[in-house]
Structure formats: structure tokens, C-alpha cells
Design a protein around this nucleic acid. Structure first.
Lengths: 107, 107, 107, 107
DNA sequence: CCCGGCGTTAATGCAC
DNA sequence: GTGCATTAACGCCGGG
């Protein structure tokens, strides 16, 4: 059996279960709905991915600027990586502390 | 902001004058300026990186949602990849794939 | 306590329950047997894993060779992926992809 | 320009340099040669991948057997992973960690 | 039996 | 264009 058809059916099921039923527009409305939904998914992903790439470009620009100011990009990256590790460590420690405090009945 | 630019300029001047690394220039104002600048660079990068990670999380969420709607994530990713190829180099990559497939005597 | 030691104990239990009792050669023979068995398991897995890694290296080499011959590795991988899909569930996945693409109104 | 055509040309060059020149069979012999080469690449990869999957299956069987003998698969995997680390780079790894820690002290 | 997490492996993007 | 560092995909496992 086609997964796609199953997908469509399932989507119809979900729609019926969870929403107002769409206006009955024909035997293939489920397909249309699924297609719309798929298009929405793809476009949202593409949109977010573009924004993400733009941010990557911004970061690259900053490193370029830093480099032209005499900073060694590699070292700056290492610094940032270390700060990230430190931050993670701190978060873990705090989580651990939270667990302890909860174990003590919230003081 | 204007101060930051001034610091930038001064640092650039020093770099132009012949030193790669930031260096103390009599008293330590040069070091302080460089440190401030470095801090600025790092914080801007970290900020942008957080935004970027947030976008990645959003994308993951969409795929999770898509999956729970019955779409096969892998196939959706393939679709997006194909669309990207189509966008970028429709007259190159796509054709290349076709040539390869035809060379193999396949559809 | 070590899970492994616990595991050994459990293995002794099972061995006693499920098989001919091994010749009573001493108070710790069960442990010895379990240790031997564990060593056998580990060594067999390691052996197979080495072979598997060798195959991965071979595959990488082929792609390197292909690349140096002018083929675009990414496209070659796509081809292989498509062939795999065709093999496995030609009446399922392929159709699914087509349905998705048609649903999007694309080629 | 099509990469595929370039590939073909380059392959022809290689053929000329490294082998007996193939009999001139027509204007598209280069394409045929490239197609053969591509097919060879794909089939070798597919073959190796099958072998690799077979080995994965063998490994899984061993773990299944081990499990039915009372060993805890996860623990056995950890043992193997530890042995791998021990083999490869115990000194290297610790040295690396030291470098990181020192860097953290300096950052 | 499915599915969400995890550990490993491949792919992408980046600097050099 | 190559090596590297990050990031995403895959396969495997245990619990619901």
C-alpha cells in the first residue's frame, strides 16, 4: 500500500478528530489538504533555513571584521567554544543543585 | 556605539602601524580597548549563534509535527533537497543527475 | 557495584538452570566460564566490527577515487539512494515521492 | 557546463595516459566509458554496503545470543567501547583533556 | 509493536 | 581544494 495514501487518510482522520471538518469539496479533498499541509511544512522549513544561513553569514562577517582588526579567528573561536563548555557545566551543576534541593523538600 | 567605533578605529590604526597583536602602548589603555572589542565580538557571535540554534530547533519541531501528521520525514527532506537543487543550478546538477541515470540506462 | 559482576552471577544462574551442570572444578568455575564466554563475545564483536570498518574505508576510497575522476560524490550517493529505494519498495516509496511532488504541483 | 561531460573527457584522458587506448568506437564512446565507470563505482559501493550490513547483522546476532545468556548488551557494548579507547589513544586523550583544561584556566 | 533517546557514522560548512 | 569542526542522519535499544 502506498504510504502517501495512508498519510492522506491519516491526515483526514486527524482533521476529523481534531478540527472542524473542512467543507466537503470532493473525493480528493484529503489529498488537497495534505498537499497544502506539505507545502506549508516545506515552505516553513525553507524559510527558517534561509534565516539560519543569514545568521551564519553574519557570524562569518564578524570573524572577518575581527580578523582585519588583528584577532586570530581560530583563537576567538576557541574562546567561544570554551565559554560554551563552561556554560554547559554551570547549567549541569545548577540542575544538580536543583535535584538536591528538591530531594531536600524544597527547603 | 560611537565609542565602540572610535575604539575600532584606534585599534585599526595600531594594526596598520605594524603590530599584529594588540599590545600595551605605554599605559594599558590599548589592552583594555582590545579586550572590550574582543568581548564585543564574542558576545555578538554568541548572540547570533543562539538565534541560529533556535532556528534549528524550530526546524526540528516542524519535522516532528510533520512526522506526527503522517509524513515521512526522510522523504520530505529529500523533497526540500531537490527543490534546493532545482533552485540553485537547475541547468547543472539536475542535468547531471539525469545524465548519470541515463548513462546507467535507467529512468 | 559493577553490573558486569552482577551479570556474571546471573549467567551462573542461567547456566545451572538451563544446561548440564559443568564439571565441578572449583568454587569459582562458573565465574570463569562466564568470563570466558564474555571474552569470546567481545572478541567476536570486535573482529566483525573491524571488518565492518574496513568496508566503510573501502567505500570511502571508492568515493574518493570517483571524485578524482570527476564524478560528484553527492550525486553518486543520490543515485545509490534512489536505486536502493527502487529495490526495496518500488511500489511504495517511489510512488510516495511522486505523490508528494505532484501534490506540490511540480515535476 | 556539464560536469558529466567534463568527467567523460577527463576519464578519456586518464584512459589514454594509463592504458591501451580503447578502440575508437564512435563519437559517444567517452560517454559509454564514463557510464561503465559510474556503473562500476555504484555496484562496488552497493556490494560493499551489503557486506557491511551483513556484518552488522552478525554483530546483532552475537548480542542477541549474549543477551539470552544473561549478559546485559548495553554493558557489553560499553566494555567494548572502553577497550577501543584504551587501545587507541589513552595517552592522547588524556593529553588532549589536559590541554583543554589548561585552556579553560587561561580563558 | 511503536517510538523516543542515544551512540555512532556520514555530510555539511568553514577556514586555510 | 583539502582538512577540520560542527551538525544532521542512521541504527540500535529499552520502555510504554
Amino acid at each position: 500500500m502506498s504510504e502517501a495514501l495512508y498519510e492522506v487518510s491519516e491526515y483526514e482522520d486527524r482533521a476529523v478528530k481534531g478540527r472542524e471538518a473542512p467543507a466537503p469539496v470532493g473525493h480528493n479533498s484529503g489529498v488537497t489538504i495534505a498537499a497544502d499541509r506539505l507545502r506549508s511544512i516545506i515552505e516553513r522549513v525553507e524559510r527558517l533555513d534561509e534565516e539560519r544561513k543569514a545568521l551564519s553569514a553574519d557570524i562569518r562577517d564578524i570573524f572577518t571584521e575581527a580578523k582585519s582588526s588583528g584577532f586570530v579567528p581560530k583563537v576567538v573561536r576557541q574562546l567561544i567554544a570554551l565559554r560554551k563548555i563552561d556554560k554547559n557545566d554551570r547549567e549541569e551543576q545548577e540542575e544538580l543543585l536543583d535535584v538536591y534541593r528538591q530531594a531536600l523538600g524544597e527547603g
